[in-house]
């Protein structure tokens, strides 16, 4: 962990330094530093209330930091607004599948297609070859190729999770943040999701929050353990599992 501090922030896709957020004096995230490398799958684990989701909220601009900096490829994110953070290349999936249930799968993906994002652009947006091809390609990737015209409401829970991942993929973000992507999935859905993540991470970095330890072992390059808003331990899954501090937090009480 200390060796990472010495490297230049330019080498990292994401570098968080001294990040603190306090809600009425309660520090949900406390002087946190975290660095994510190119094409890395980083998993954040930790007990309930450790501040995992808050970290993602801070990165994507949903929550404003009290102190500290979040740099994405050298650009400060804490000063940008949510949609601007998306424009520089950060995508975020929410904990509960957050899709538009009244629209079809195609329309869900189309809305996330990165074109016509202002009022005039949205009015004059045309569903051309490029859009149709891209939507179809992504739908195949997230196992929903034959569901393009179904209303999103009718999808199963796992399919909704995939759809939201697909909505992020079509934005082609350089940093993808997933909050519990396999929660509530069946074993086979979980395996498919793991292979999907392996595939989509080839040209981007991924930050994942997950509770399912088997899934974490399957996908993680490195694991960060959060506890009470601070980094408790960091490294490979093997190392983290053997760390007495981690064992103490998870099993100690």
């Amino acid at each position: 962990m200390t060796s990472l501090h010495k490297a230049s922030t330019q080498d990292f896709v994401l570098s968080i330094e001294g990040l603190t957020v306090s809600f009425d004096g309660f520090k949900a995230v406390n002087d946190l530093s975290l660095y994510v490398e190119e094409q890395e799958i980083r998993v954040i684990i930790g007990p309930n209330g450790a501040g995992k989701t808050t970290v993602l909220d801070l990165i994507c601009g949903r929550t404003k930091a009290t102190e500290g900096s979040i740099k994405f490829r050298g650009q400060e994110l804490t000063r940008l607004r949510e949609h601007e953070i998306v424009h520089v290349g950060v995508g975020r999936k929410f904990q509960n599948p957050s899709i538009y249930e009244d629209l079809t799968v195609f329309e869900n993906l189309e809305i996330s297609f990165p074109r016509g994002r202002n009022v005039w652009g949205a009015l004059t947006f045309r569903r051309d070859e490029e859009v149709i091809n891209k939507v179809t390609e992504i739908a195949e990737m997230i196992f929903l190729g034959d569901k393009l015209d179904s209303q999103a409401e009718l999808l199963s829970h796992g399919q909704k999770q995939w759809l939201e991942i697909g909505m992020l993929l079509i934005q082609d973000p350089e940093l993808l943040m997933l909050d519990e992507p396999v929660a509530g999935m069946s074993v086979s859905e979980r395996q498919k999701t793991a292979s999907l993540l392996q595939r989509i991470t080839q040209d981007r970095s991924v930050l994942v929050i997950e509770h399912d330890m088997q899934f974490v072992e399957d996908i993680a390059d490195r694991v960060t353990v959060l506890h009470q808003g601070k980094v408790l331990s960091e490294g490979s899954m093997e190392r983290v599992k053997a760390d007495p501090k981690v064992v103490e937090v998870y099993l100690g009480h």
Partner: peptide, 28 residues
């Protein structure tokens, strides 16, 4: 029938999702 119409429906349901898909929701 434009994408703006579909965006309005999307905003009605999941305002945050639209915002984090890169749209400035207030303008719409």
């Amino acid at each position: 029938k434009s994408k703006l119409g579909r965006l309005l429906v999307a905003m009605r349901e999941r305002e945050d999702r639209v915002r984090f898909s890169g749209y400035d929701v207030a303008n719409f």
